[in-house]
Design a protein around this nucleic acid. Structure first.
Lengths: 337, 337
DNA sequence: CTGAAAGCGCTAACAA
DNA sequence: TTGTTAGCGCTTTCAG
């Protein structure tokens, strides 16, 4: 701790007014640089001096109370601890909110409905301008009722028919970009290890894979599309089938699968990227950047999801309530292709 | 968005009072269950009914204004995006804050001094009860001046002579626990791959390693302590030296090093844990849980750092200002030992 | 048991 | 150009 004034910064506008020998209204005017009010240079200077001397700091809460609308934006997240993903959403949301004079109120709910309701209630009581409701992975959710009580935008999740705007990653474009990267490197026999978990990622990335193949005039070989659990184990287990299939490149549903695949491939005596090129998805730094060779991967735009979420909430960007707003997933090039 | 009342929830205490046919003070009393005030059962019920019917929601900001101290705790973080670590600090801080009726105001500064000052200023203006100043990895920092203006506790960092309380992981205990785990498994020839980066982790974990050896009466072999860059590459590069040293177990400075070591060991034809046992540090889920075999690792208690930080800030726990409060690092057992 | 009134720190007309 | 005044929504004495 420290000298801690403990909260209320004690020195108020009235103190400043007194010290500067002006009225409290004048202080308000010069502090906020009110356009309408013309203040004498002299008074203005005295106020500034007093502010500096007293260490005056406006009370944002009081300001909010008298002005009406608050400067808070609530962000409720189901998971902020497990992965860096949610952290990036917070980061993006916070940066953008800040840029517009807003402050983030964060709540973690662990996916627990009670915590969620409590969190939303608390935000409502703090008069948030609106709420960003986020998930740490892209999926369809059902919206807590309370959310209807304020402006809400869904981040990295969506709820059909809820009438709420949603911002999600463009899985299809990402899958397509990954595949195109492989095609551009000269590959024609390209496998896709998809996840066994039903999700927008599952269908979207597959669609993107197919679209890229179509666009390049490459025939689909259904045996090139495998399913595996979306983890290291899945990728490792798929290695045998990959080798048999005779492909020269594989697009993995995510980086963890790619990591497992690396291991499996190595055991089969194959080298990346010489024998088989690999592209991952998620761009999990800790994995992708440090595998040998470093893994080319498609990044999920979590930071941007946060940014766009705030922009939509604030009405800075317009969004369709019927269909989620898509944010592009960029390819991060490393050495596995 | 939605039906969005857009912020001010419009229905106020006065409305409730009117609807219930009582005075505004009475409403306040029943809503807050004020002990001193005895309210007639009848009036009480009418108020509750009115609240329910009107969907009244107290305005936390107004309450704060009139009561004095606010219910905010500020958390300024240098990085919330890069790793899950900061996310866990936020999570722990949020849970504990919540438990005591506080709400977290989060700001990310990217280590940028301007952003930092702006963040702190904003928090001060919001009358935060205090500020948690956190780093995403354990280190000594210099404290921004502004922090002196309020109660502050340092989380996962410290500043000697600042007079501020700090909460950090107990690196030494962690290093010791890791080594003991290896000793308990019957190992005597135990290497430690330390980082080349000066830090509390570097000295603390080494001290713990030595302490464990001492306690077990195992002689130190200086050649068993290696240095490597704290990443996969470092661990991979150290494999050769490990093999030559003839140790049967190695404690790695972190999980990434262990991951690299796994690869190097495999290339030398050695298997984990049969030929050499490995323990990591950091317990980075995405790595540790999914290597083959899964890696036993020491966890950094980020969640608890957040919790304890809040407790100290709120005066629930007492802490020494001179020396950082240590939080234990638990061993997470998997299959690499 | 309940209500009237003052005040938290600030803003915003409206006077002067 | 500046000061007065009335709130913002709520808590809190202090009367009735």
């Amino acid at each position: 701790m420290s000298r801690g004034s403990g909260g209320t910064s004690s020195v108020t506008m009235r103190d400043v007014a007194k010290a500067a020998g002006v009225s409290i209204a004048t202080v308000s005017h010069v502090i906020n640089d009110k356009p309408g009010a013309r203040i004498g240079d002299d008074a203005r200077r005295r106020v500034h001096d007093a502010v500096a001397e007293l260490g005056y700091r406006p009370n944002a809460l009081a300001k909010t109370l008298s002005q009406g609308g608050s400067r808070f934006i609530g962000l409720v997240a189901d998971q902020i601890a497990t992965t860096p993903f949610a952290g990036q959403i917070i980061h993006g949301a916070q940066d953008e909110a800040w840029r517009h004079g807003y402050v983030l109120l964060v709540a973690n709910t662990d996916g627990n409905a009670d915590a969620e309701n409590e969190a939303i209630a608390m935000m409502l009581e703090h008069q948030v301008r609106g709420i960003l409701y986020s998930s740490w992975y892209h999926r369809e959710i059902s919206v807590p009722e309370q959310l209807e009580l304020t402006d809400t935008v869904l981040v990295d999740c969506f709820a059909r028919g809820s009438g709420l705007c949603a911002v999600v990653p463009d899985e299809e474009q990402g899958g397509r970009a990954a595949t195109e990267k492989l095609i551009a490197a000269g590959h024609q026999r390209i496998a896709f290890i998809n996840t066994t978990t039903p999700s927008p990622a599952q269908t979207g990335r597959l669609a993107g894979y197919r679209a890229a193949l179509d666009a390049a005039g490459i025939e689909h070989d259904p045996s090139f599309v495998l399913d595996a659990s979306p983890e290291q184990e899945g990728g490792y287990g798929a290695a045998g089938r990959i080798v048999e299939s005779g492909v020269t490149a594989v697009f993995c549903h995510n980086d963890r699968v790619a990591m497992g695949l690396y291991d499996g491939l190595r055991e089969h005596g194959l080298r990346v990227p010489d024998d088989v090129a690999v592209v991952g998805f998620d761009n999990q730094e800790v994995i992708a950047a440090h595998l040998r060779p470093p893994l080319t991967s498609v990044a999920l735009p979590h930071y941007d999801l946060g940014v766009v979420g705030v922009r939509i909430l604030l009405g800075l960007d317009t969004a369709d309530q019927a269909i989620p707003t898509l944010v592009a997933c960029p390819v991060i090039q490393r050495q596995s292709v």
